[in-house]
């Protein structure tokens, strides 16, 4: 069941209105839908090709934005599905199931958000910042290099860290990891104890951000990624270990119980083992 207060997911046919590259292998897909249930940042949709050409499972894509009947996504071409998605032209039909999953909290109880995004983990934090600009203390985006960053989405409000800065720094980007930038802006000396971290990106980044949040006594919410089957809790194909008592854990579904988890609820010993 969708938690109370979340929009009801719908399954419908959509029409591609845009599918433009924002960098090499990095694209923004826009789809016009007949329904507009809305979404909460952190939620995703399962996209698929129409009947007859559909993949066995849809592709889960985090929702970047939803404006006037048009929903958009940011994705990287990593395999067969995303490769075929990249070939869709405006006018092409897709099937949509969403919004799905447990999102980031919007109400942080008076705390300020430190947003940390890595690579194609940007959409939920982009959307969060757009919906709650007044509650953002800092926003970080990290990527491998300049070609790996969706520059059209990164206004001056994002501090950008690149592992390989290259010859010409763009958009005020800095050499280094997002966690270096966070360390610089928020020394772990107890001066800022009123923040909450919201993060989405590669696993090593999430682990590092979680450690930083703990050192500062900040709550931490992480959006996790797993291979998904159904996307709505039916198949138990995407599980994440969550704590279930002092030394016990149980499998939770990444698609329905997540993808956003309170880091304090995750079973870290099991996660680190995998």
């Amino acid at each position: 069941m969708a938690a109370p207060g979340l929009p009801r997911p719908c399954r419908c046919e959509g029409v591609v209105t845009g599918n433009e590259p924002l960098g090499p292998g990095l694209l923004r897909l826009s789809v016009r839908l007949p329904l507009e249930p809305g979404f909460v940042p952190g939620q995703f949709a399962m996209l698929n090709l129409p009947a007859g050409r559909a993949w066995t499972f849809g592709r889960p894509l985090s929702i970047l934005d939803w404006l006037a009947g048009e929903v958009s996504f940011l994705y990287r071409v990593v395999g067969r599905g995303t490769g075929e998605l990249a070939g869709l032209k405006p006018g092409a039909a897709v099937t949509f199931l969403g919004p799905l999953g447990t999102p980031f909290p919007l109400d942080l109880g008076g705390r300020k958000a430190v947003l940390v995004a890595g690579g194609v983990g940007l959409p939920p934090l982009f959307a969060w910042r757009k919906q709650r600009p007044q509650d953002v203390a800092a926003a970080y985006f990290g990527a491998r290099d300049q070609e790996d960053a969706p520059w059209p989405l990164l206004d001056s409000g994002w501090r950008v860290g690149l592992e390989d800065l290259g010859p010409s720094a763009r958009g005020g980007a800095r050499q280094g990891l997002v966690t270096d930038l966070l360390e610089e802006d928020f020394p772990a000396d107890g001066t800022r104890d009123d923040c909450t971290v919201l993060a989405c990106g590669p696993w090593p980044m999430l682990e590092a951000v979680h450690r930083q949040a703990r050192r500062r006594g900040w709550p931490c919410w992480l959006s996790l990624e797993e291979h998904m089957g159904c996307g709505y809790g039916a198949c138990k194909g995407c599980v994440v270990p969550v704590a279930d008592g002092p030394d016990a854990w149980r499998p939770a579904t990444c698609c329905q119980d997540g993808p956003v988890f309170d880091a304090a609820h995750l079973a870290w010993p099991q996660l680190e083992r995998t």
Binding site: C10, A234, Q256
Partner: peptide, 8 residues
């Protein structure tokens, strides 16, 4: 699961 879902 899925009880809240809609489709045209």
């Amino acid at each position: 699961t899925g009880h809240e879902m809609t489709a045209p």
